[in-house]
């Protein structure tokens, strides 16, 4: 699980072009979409859908479903573990 989380952090940085961030700077429970966290927006949420589809063959049909799944690295990893 922790390996998956580290991989996810690197994939997030790459997929969203967060060039100045290192995986270590993203805490497992950091809220990705709030200003206190990474401050991501609606387009980034769509990129998460692409990320899950390309790397984990997981499909999310409705973007509004993504809100809870994409909350943090923890919730993302949980979703991947349960569904793949």
């Amino acid at each position: 699980m922790s390996e998956l989380k580290e991989t996810l952090k690197a994939q997030i940085i790459n997929q969203l072009s967060l060039e100045d961030l290192t995986p270590a700077a993203i805490a497992d429970d950091m809220p990705l979409f709030s200003e206190e966290g990474l401050g991501l927006d609606s387009i980034d949420a769509l990129e998460f859908i692409v990320l899950l589809e390309s790397n984990y063959a997981l499909k999310i049909a409705d973007p509004s479903q993504g809100r809870e799944i994409f909350h943090s690295v923890n919730t993302l990893a949980d979703f991947i573990e349960k569904n793949r």
């Binding site: 969203l16 072009s17 387009i43 980034d44 769509l46 990129e47 692409v50 589809e53 390309s54």
Partner: peptide
């Protein structure tokens, strides 16, 4: 080539 149309590139 990469797999899926990228929304963040499209915008």
């Amino acid at each position: 080539n990469i797999g899926n149309p990228s929304p963040s590139l499209f915008v």
